[in-house]
Computed example of a mutant assay.
Amino acid sequence: MSQYPRDEFDKIPESASRQGVHRERLVPPGSSGLALKILVGVLALAVGLAAFFILPRLGFGSGAEPTSGQSTATATADASPSPAAGADSSEPAPSDPATDGPAGGGTEGSDPTPTADPDGIDRSEPVNVYNASGIGGQATLAAGRVTADGWTVEEIADWGGAPLQNSVIFYNDPSQLETAQELSGVLGIPTLIETTEVSPDVTVVIGPGFQ
């Protein structure tokens, strides 16, 4: 017997068929629970489909594929050349000895500055040779000797001036005197005349008796 005093909950009719309160069973007696299993399976399938189709569109999930723009950017970045490992971009490019010139910075193959010959005579100055001897080929003969000595013959022609008694070398001013003297020794012509009326270049006129 209970040691607690009786109350209104203890006043139960003697003929009542139910004793106490019981919860209703979800699965009727004698049922195997198949319907409940089917219901749980359908709910699980619905949740899986929702997670597969809906969540990726909402941005969830770390395995999402990159968009086409991201793929293009990645491909472009991979295609860009990268400096070699250990290379220092601050180092200047090595110079090419085939293209570098001398200490003055010029390139190989450029025209050097004309320099005087060892005897101090600038043989790059042009020379004219004219024939006043009346014998054909004398101007060509003299021009061959001048060219063989390193000079540049500008013109070979017949003399159109006054007749001469001997061969003469004409020059314009004292700056051409050394050239005239050098040609005098090459051709054996002792007569040198300074004048500006013949030609701006040193001019050799072959007269009678030229050897």
Rank of each mutant, 00 (worst) to 15 (best):
T147D: 07
L55V: 07
L45C: 03
E24N: 09
G63R: 12
Q70E: 15
P208G: 08
V129Q: 10
F210R: 00
A103M: 06
G30F: 06
I193N: 11
P208Y: 05
W151N: 06
E8Y: 11
L164N: 06
L192K: 08
Y130K: 02
A180I: 05
E65H: 05
S68K: 11
D119M: 04
P28T: 07
D119S: 08
A148S: 11
A73D: 11
G30K: 02
S80F: 09
A46R: 02
Y4S: 12
L192G: 01
T179N: 12
V168G: 03
A132N: 12
Q19C: 03
S199I: 01
D7T: 08
A50I: 07
G188I: 00
A116Y: 09
G137V: 10
D78G: 09
L192C: 05
P56Q: 07
L43A: 15
W151V: 07
F170Y: 13
D88K: 07
Q70R: 13
R57V: 07
Y171K: 00
E8W: 09
W159S: 00
S68E: 13
S110F: 08
S68C: 04
A77C: 05
V186C: 08
D10M: 04
L49I: 11
V204S: 00
M1W: 05
D111S: 11
E14D: 14
I121H: 04
V146F: 03
D173G: 14
P92A: 10
A51G: 14
D100C: 06
Q70K: 11
P56F: 07
L58H: 00
P28D: 11
D119C: 06
G150H: 01
S89W: 12
V168T: 15
E91K: 14
F60E: 05
V42D: 05
A16N: 12
P28V: 08
Q19L: 11
L55P: 04
G105P: 08
E178A: 15
L45E: 02
Q176G: 05
V42C: 13
V205L: 02
N128V: 07
S71M: 14
G63Y: 10
T76P: 02
S95D: 13
I12L: 15
S32F: 11
L55S: 09
L141Q: 13
S90V: 03
G61E: 07
A103F: 14
R123Q: 03
T115C: 06
S90E: 10
L45R: 06
T74G: 12
V205I: 14
T107K: 15
A98L: 13
P112L: 10
G161C: 11
A73E: 14
P5S: 09
G105I: 12
D78N: 13
T67D: 13
V47T: 10
G161F: 06
A142R: 01
S15Q: 06
S167Q: 01
S15D: 14
A73K: 13
N172G: 01
V42A: 14
